[in-house]
Design a protein around this nucleic acid. Sequence first.
DNA 1: TCTGGGGTCCTAGGACCC
DNA 2: TCTGGGGTCCTAGGACCC
Length: 392
Amino acid sequence: MFAPEATTEIAAVESAPPLIAHIDMDAFFVSVELLRRPQLRGKPVVVGGSGPRAVVAAASYAAREFGVRSATAMAKARELCPGAVILAPDMAAYRAASTRVMAVLAEFSETVEVLGLDEAYLDLGDCPTPKSRARAIKHAIRSQTGLVCSVGIGPNRLIAKIASDLDKPDGLCLLVKERFLDAVGERPARLLPGIGPKTAERIGAIGITTVAELAAVEFEALAAIVGHSQAEALRARARGEGSAELCIARKRKSESRVRTFDHDLTDPAVMHRELTSMAERLAADLLENDRRGRTVTLKIRLRPFRTFSRSRTLATATNDRATITAAALALFDEFERDAPVRLLGVGLAGLEVEDENGPAPEAAASGKPGTRPIQLTLVDLDGEGRDCTTSN
DNA sequence: TCTGGGGTCCTAGGACCC
DNA sequence: TCTGGGGTCCTAGGACCC
């Protein structure tokens, strides 16, 4: 179905839109652990914390057969699968493995959008033989890292992502737009990214449970329950419509540290200590990367599970330890608690990047002193650093 | 499913300005 | 002056994703 080399260009113009591949590592954290513990292959293995409130970070396929999934409470996971081997997360190892995987992907395309540690989109352009390209990618990842992935190929990000999920693990699936509803129309609408438990329940209330039903729903009926804007987005997704633009240099917009306590806290002095410690770690990391932000956010979760946030925007961006700590403690002291505290967190939003070229664009635009403000502003307008979130 | 940690985007109301 | 409309910023909460 794909044109031979000589007519590639014509084929691309006529029918073949640029193709996107979605690469999704299979049971990533577990698979990294298995590299150094090969004797556990095929067994139920769970990566997760050990505290009373820990959850599963990753489960092997053998463990999934017992009903253990990501985000299952560890206590529940042990109950479901008493024979599971439980391993503590080793994020440094997973980050290192992720870096190796992404390096392999970079050999195949200049345009790679990394999403988290275990996923990426890759622009295949008008590749005439996308399936053999995908096989080559899978083979390279396996031979260079020892890890297995699933690849989905489609005309846009949405279809590529869904395709990568259809054939897991070790999958390879190419899905064209025309066949989208044939392939997933009868599947639950929950399959679509952006439809979580709440939205699934809401649309279920008007009788929509499958992708095909969502694709065919009368617009006003859908808009009445999820709003016009979301209705538009959901229906488009159900029809396989989506963007094919990748963003290779996303800028982080906020950074935070949160902690759920093994036992709920009631002593304000202890909470002050915890907040101070988180604010200091946050500030240290921001300082190390030369990032500053203006809005300090306090996150607080009360027993049993009520979550609140309070924020304050400062006059200028900062990464100063004392400033962030003082703002977080002030927000905390102003908050009226009526129950013990399960979680506390400190965040900084509205981040600017201060890289080697000079101050962040905001600072440059507002006339603050900097080394080379004009160059940076220009680079940022049309360079790779362009913020792509607006073009989606 | 007694529910982690680190993110993103969206919505909605109020303040404030012109 | 009894009262418009648009734009932007800030705050809080919700939903979702990996």
